[in-house]
């Protein structure tokens, strides 16, 4: 209910602002909606949205699985931490744009280059978060598992993984928002489709209604994924915590 109210408030502010700014700079909500419907009817909206979502999914899964594994290793094995740390710092501070441009130069304007570039941008934050998680693992529970001779996989699944779950959730959440931002840049620079490409076109034509139509649809999809996937996962991972009154 409160969410709906805040959404209505957002629309109201937008509409009022549109009245002052004029249609060219900030079109009113109905004008944008009209473009949305037209694009949806032609199928272009779904095509571009689908292309972007596919890239996001692939890059996200790649970065999360690789980053989690490396982060866990670095948190657990001192040698891995020492070896990996300089690389990690380099990757963390490398601007997204540099990675994307280099990827396109080295691997050509290909799908693989785009996805790899997005994944590389997300990778270091996943590593850092999971490394913290692995460092914070409760040693007394490890000892318990070892005394009771739990097989490795069972210990990992029931003792280690639940401790990492909040870190995985946090990394997924921040990572998803990072990937959303970077995918558009990657598409703008070197892909013939996707929301980023459309926004680039709209920018060149100074077509604000089209620009807003695409970005807001995109934002809506992000919001839906966040509520339907990320939040339930977080809630499940932390369900054993006694709830605050």
């Amino acid at each position: 209910m409160l969410r709906l109210l805040s959404f209505v408030l957002f629309l109201a502010i937008w509409w009022i602002a549109a009245l002052f700014a004029g249609g060219a700079k900030l079109p009113s909500p109905p004008a944008v909606l009209q473009v949305m419907i037209a694009e949806a009817a032609s199928g272009a909206l779904f095509l571009h949205l689908g292309a972007t979502l596919a890239r996001v999914t692939l890059a996200f899964v790649l970065a999360m699985s690789l980053g989690s594994a490396i982060g866990y290793l670095m948190g657990r094995v001192k040698l891995a931490d020492r070896l990996g740390d300089p690389w990690l710092i380099l990757l963390l501070n490398l601007p997204a744009l540099v990675v994307i441009v280099l990827a396109y130069i080295w691997a050509g304007l290909t799908e693989a280059a785009a996805i790899a570039a997005i994944a590389i941008n997300k990778l270091p934050t996943a590593i850092v978060t999971l490394r913290e998680g692995a460092r914070a693992l409760d040693r007394s529970l490890d000892e318990m598992a070892s005394v009771f001779a739990m097989p490795r996989w069972r210990a990992f699944r029931h003792v280690v993984l639940p401790q990492l779950a909040p870190y995985i959730a946090a990394s997924a959440r921040s990572g998803l928002s990072l990937v959303w931002k970077i995918v558009l840049v990657a598409e703008l620079l070197g892909r013939p489709n996707g929301v980023g490409f459309e926004i680039g076109v709209a920018f060149q034509l100074f077509d604000t209604p089209r620009l807003l139509a695409y970005s807001l649809t995109f934002a809506a999809v992000v919001l839906v994924i966040e509520t339907l996937l990320v939040q339930p996962f977080e809630a499940r991972a932390t369900r054993w915590r006694p709830r605050a009154a």
Partner: peptide, 15 residues
């Protein structure tokens, strides 16, 4: 087989 009761219970809080 070892059965152990630690000083603190050391249960898995998420199970």
């Amino acid at each position: 087989r070892i059965g152990m009761v630690f000083q603190e219970p050391r249960l898995l809080p998420w199970r």
